[in-house]
Write a protein that binds this DNA or RNA. Structure first.
Length: 262
DNA sequence: CGGCAAACCTGCGAGC
DNA sequence: TGCTCGCAGGTTTGCC
């Protein structure tokens, strides 16, 4: 998507009225003619800053992806819901089989107060995300630490895969009540969260089944999971008999090593 | 308010 | 081979 920076959007087409939510009024018309000034991210939201002071907000949901290529064929492919063409002959298609994603437009000056962003917790990759900050957030929760890590109002941007991976690296039992983690255990957990997210971004993201990178390849980080989706396989860090275990917390799979994580 | 289940949607893999 | 069924992901909604 870096490839969009600096480009002018000359043609925007939507192929349905909504994703998870309806597109905002006059969505395509408000994008057409705009130049992209900057791409950024807040939690799992992509923020595209436009030259008229508005921001194009995109969430990929679970199966959303941006397909980038030349604009010589503008017909929508299967599950292409929005297609953008730039002045330079680039075609960017938002493709999302499950339509759990969403798009919105927001004035740059109101971005922090946008309903989808206002309640988000701190960015884990920022310097300000410290063990003290994490410990304080977790002290408010009596539920399991794994579930708390997925709460976007406590910490922004951790998904189900990375919650398991971070807890494994930090050696923390996913069922531990969040409030029982003190500063001492928040320290390795912060380090693990930062490392897991940074490595995943560096590797081009994770992917499962039909989720692919823009070039069609699986996200490389998929090949680096220590525990996620590895039930029954040996723990990569110890020789325990059971290997990686799976449990369900709040309806989501958690993978962990019972011997290593306490 | 916290915690949890269900809902949204589709593709895929397992099992018959 | 072809069918059904369960499950995966992120977030919101609704119920206790």
């Amino acid at each position: 998507m870096q490839t969009l920076e600096g480009r002018r959007l000359i043609r925007v087409r939507t192929y349905r009225a909504d994703l998870r939510r309806p597109f905002p009024p006059s969505f395509a018309e408000r994008l057409e003619g705009r130049r992209v000034e900057k791409l950024a991210r807040r939690a799992k939201y992509l923020t595209i800053f436009l030259d008229d002071g508005w921001v194009w907000l995109i969430h990929l949901g679970m199966s959303g992806r941006m397909l980038i290529g030349p604009a010589d064929d503008t017909r929508p492919g299967k599950h292409d819901h929005v297609i953008v063409e730039t002045e330079e002959g680039l075609r960017v298609a938002y493709n999302d089989a499950r339509r759990f994603g969403l798009m919105d437009l927001c004035a740059k000056t109101d971005l922090a107060e946008h309903p989808l962003l206002a309640a988000l917790g701190p960015e884990p990759l920022e310097k300000a995300f410290t063990p003290a900050v994490l410990a304080k957030a977790l002290s408010k929760r009596s539920g399991p630490i794994k579930t708390a890590l997925l709460d976007q109002t406590l910490i922004a941007g951790i998904g189900n895969i990375y919650a398991s991976e971070a807890l494994f690296r930090a050696g923390i039992d996913p069922t531990r009540p969040a409030e029982t983690l003190g500063l001492k255990e928040a320290r390795p957990l912060v380090a693990a969260i930062k490392a897991v997210l940074a490595e995943a971004i560096e590797a081009g993201g994770s992917s499962l089944r039909d989720h692919r990178r823009p070039d069609g390849e699986l996200g490389y980080f998929q090949h680096a999971f220590a525990v996620y989706d590895r039930e029954g396989m040996p723990c990569p860090k110890c020789d325990c008999a059971e290997g990686v275990r799976r449990l369900v917390q709040s309806g989501r799979s958690t993978f962990y090593c019972a011997k290593r994580q306490r």
